[in-house]
Design a protein around this nucleic acid. Structure first.
Lengths: 299, 299
DNA sequence: AAAAATTTCGTTCAAATCGTCCATTTCTCG
DNA sequence: CGAGAAATGGACGATTTGAACGAAATTTTT
């Protein structure tokens, strides 16, 4: 539980090396590992002693971040999770340190504990990247950290996507980030949230022209047509042009009974919220509730 | 028993590959398979080591889920008969059709049968995407197919990366695509190939300014400095400017004893092949052989 | 400071793994 | 074909492991 600095509980070390708490306690009692005790008799293991133990026996370290060991290259060597108050701050610290293994374990645990992908997207992932994004303008180092964190998140979201139940092919969707938008995380997160809701989602990635969305929606084979199109808008090359194009596209989709969902940081700036056939969402959880309604309406 | 995600008991692996526990223990004791031991002397096999063993010895995988692999492993794809002559054509057809599950099964099977990531990168992945890229200019549909295929490949390469050995932290590298280059596959493939060669690789993704590479290489903490920097060059905003910047950067790296490796479609157009401290490669297998030489020289 | 929630304590117990031995199968080669 | 070598898979008692439990200690919240 990372009680205080440089002291581990038996459970902590057991998790770090992928064995059970029982075994670790037995090894300690056998004298293989020396510990101190609290006033009440609880074992406390110094990190240095833990490292000596695993090194001496050539044991694998499954969760290096628990021992404060760095796992990356570039900047920020020492990883200290002690200062982190909330879970989201812990995740942010791991991302800033480029600690892919730690970030993975953190997110996986939270997902397995019941948090949805939508919640994780709006929570740790979003707040961390906003926080890191604010470093972006300050320094070159900020860009480095931001790029590295983004790559780690891409990897993690792909992994979460694999953990959700296989989707029924009944409802299909396709989407991506519009032309000129190079942020890859939002469309990826959207596809994960959609699949989490049991709907098949094809992600076209960043920088996708409207014409491509069109051809995907209006293809000849009716069996292939999606029921939903989603678009991420995080950078706008030409506001007016984009708006017109999207409005025309939405009109065509409406006539074909295809739902259009738009999200992203700049979605509201498009100023097309008044168009009834377009759904604008501000967060992944909003997207999720929309999908719930949509499914209910279609069945 | 599956104590932790990454550690198997001899029995687990024996069941996974359909042999007996006795044989497996004998193979381990003969050194064919390296394991760690618990304090009590029980063998623990890392999943990545299990996969290395399976690939090296050409063993069948009877129960892929034990190794965390999808059930499709070992199953012959139905689409392989659809007029496709070679395996690479089969993969290309799957990608064009947006058949992510099929493409995944195909690539995973080839990897587990012994093909390296470098070979798969230069083979099915490269040829498929070149072929699809040629559709790019012809039609909007081409763009759709290209985007979809790229996303699928990103996912697949991430998955392959997870299957290879966790690297020893002895050699480190960092890299990405240069500023203005938005192709995400090349740097991702490079990082996978580097990790396949036992070198830690941090991918900074697309659109990474030279200044970011610099700060990563010349950071204060010497323990964090990489031994290799790799750069992908697939689009050039300003040829001359890029060249000057890269040459300056390479000179600094040379003085710090950091190897600079450049790859990508337009790497040769930079016309900096004459600079001795810069390594230019034309394929992932060339990168791989360079890494072999590099490792040999450093030890 | 008291109460509630969480973690760790020490212990017990069934299941898994240890190393070793051996019968059987498979391979090698004269 | 057949004898010897090598590899396989099962069986064995001894040891180790991981999970469970109520009680006590610790941490967090009120």
């Amino acid at each position: 539980m990372l009680t205080s600095d440089n002291l581990l509980s038996p459970k902590d070390l057991a998790v770090a090396i992928g064995s059970s708490e029982s075994s670790l306690k037995r090894w300690i009692d056998r004298g293989l590992l020396s510990v101190s005790r609290t006033a009440g008799g609880h074992r406390r293991i110094a990190v240095s002693e833990a490292i000596r133990f695993v090194r001496a026996r050539g044991m694998p370290i499954v969760r290096p971040e628990i021992l404060g060991l760095p796992a990356s290259v570039g900047v920020k060597s020492r990883l200290s999770l002690n200062g982190a108050r909330s879970p989201n701050e812990t995740f942010s610290a791991l991302l800033r340190a480029g600690h892919d293994v730690g970030a993975r374990a953190h997110l996986l645990n939270r997902f397995l504990a019941g948090e949805t992908i939508a919640e994780l997207a709006d929570g740790p992932i979003r707040t961390s990247l906003i926080e890191i994004g604010e470093m972006w303008h300050d320094s070159v180092e900020g860009i480095l950290i931001e790029h590295r964190a983004t790559e780690i998140c891409v990897e993690l979201i792909q992994e979460l996507k694999k953990l959700i139940q296989p989707v029924s092919a009944e409802l299909r969707s396709i989407g991506g980030a519009i032309d000129g938008d190079v942020y890859k995380l939002p469309p990826l997160l959207a596809s994960a949230v959609i699949q989490e809701n049991g709907i098949q989602a094809v992600n076209l990635g960043t920088n996708t022209p409207i014409a491509v969305f069109e051809i995907a929606c209006l293809c000849d084979d009716l069996e292939q047509r999606p029921d939903i199109v989603w678009m991420s808008v995080n950078s706008l090359s030409e506001l007016a042009m984009n708006r017109d194009e999207i409005e025309r596209f939405a009109a065509r989709c409406a006539s074909e009974d295809i739902a259009v969902v738009i999200g992203g940081r700049l979605a509201s700036e498009l100023d097309i919220g008044h168009i009834s056939s377009i759904e604008i969402h501000r967060s992944m959880q909003e997207l999720s509730t929309f999908l719930e309604r949509f499914k209910a309406a279609r069945i």
